[in-house]
Design a protein around this nucleic acid. Sequence first.
DNA 1: GCACATATTGCGTGTGACGCAATTTCAGGT
DNA 2: ACCTGAAATTGCGTCACACGCAATATGTGC
Lengths: 195, 195
Amino acid sequence: MDLRARNKQVTREAISHAALRLAIEQGPSGLALVRVTDIATAAGVSPRTYNNYFSSREEAICSFQADQSRRVGQALRARPDGEPLDRAVIAAVIELYTDPEPDRAGLGMIMSTPELEGEALKAFSMAEGPLAEAIAARTGIDPGRDLFPAVTAAAVAGAIRVAGRYWLQPGNSGPFADVLRGALSCVIPAAPRGQ
Amino acid sequence: MDLRARNKQVTREAISHAALRLAIEQGPSGLALVRVTDIATAAGVSPRTYNNYFSSREEAICSFQADQSRRVGQALRARPDGEPLDRAVIAAVIELYTDPEPDRAGLGMIMSTPELEGEALKAFSMAEGPLAEAIAARTGIDPGRDLFPAVTAAAVAGAIRVAGRYWLQPGNSGPFADVLRGALSCVIPAAPRGQ
DNA sequence: GCACATATTGCGTGTGACGCAATTTCAGGT
DNA sequence: ACCTGAAATTGCGTCACACGCAATATGTGC
């Protein structure tokens, strides 16, 4: 990775981090008070530069979650070859989402702010493409002819989202890993049907 | 339903219909050319009134799909009591989404326009809440303690979305019902695990 | 230390979303 | 048929945002 590219990444993360931090400070109800100028200032860049990286506050705020989702496919590919699909997916997701344990405030901000709903869904759905490819590769199914990889990927993304929502509920002090495992086992078969 | 409420509904649908029609005319690449004024004029209302019903063009365009999703729960509840979960869900979804056969242009516009992605995901996810409740009612599971209803609902919504994307691919002239059936059978168990 | 690609920035413009208050519309009762 | 009041429509003003463009600053690689 180029040095220049790494600098861009640093700037990107600075903006994203500032945006999420400011959003958390104001809480879900006061998201409108988080102005573009504030985000840019907090990140140490000009408003115009902020806009070179993100085309909306929502995108900046949810960027972290989106990045996380993008890694799900690669996490599944890192699992050993012989492992059954369900075990591999569960292990990959838990590994990715509990190291470290997610930031309750950040996840809560993203998932329980109406104005962020669309962007949050986009963030979680970012996992689907790469994950579907990884599932296809693992099961040897052609994703162009069989819907199984894409449908399963969507189900996994949905399960992660539901698990997050449940974990955020007050009075839920258990580890996220347990919730994730429970959610994922509802929908992931050990192998494609009939095989 | 009140007469006044019905009039509001008529206006709402006029705006939504106009928005989708204009968007289709310009195609996914020219969505920026669909101005608020155009939508309002085409619907026969003032721009301000358009904004009383929808707070963004995207929302107006995807409103039809959102309404459709909201009906999934009720469609499942309409299935006979004894029917196994998987059959009931599949029958309910197919009934709802193939009568009539979806408008290819409209669905394509909504699902393959990047600017509409967030709103489209919101539209499909509208099904999840009511559907989860219907699943909970049918299976007798307490949705507050067990994640199965919510996870399954999310998986169903995801499967419908994936099926739609697949059905839109050129060279796919088969009935939508078949695609839906295939997608749904990937993830819906006949009953919650272990029961 | 230089040169060039690339990122950053400032400015200007067009558009959208929405609060507010005036006005129109119309359902329901007399 | 008319009145009345609630509710919907509308116009206006405001504010913030996204983005194109061109100038400038930055720093990497030689």
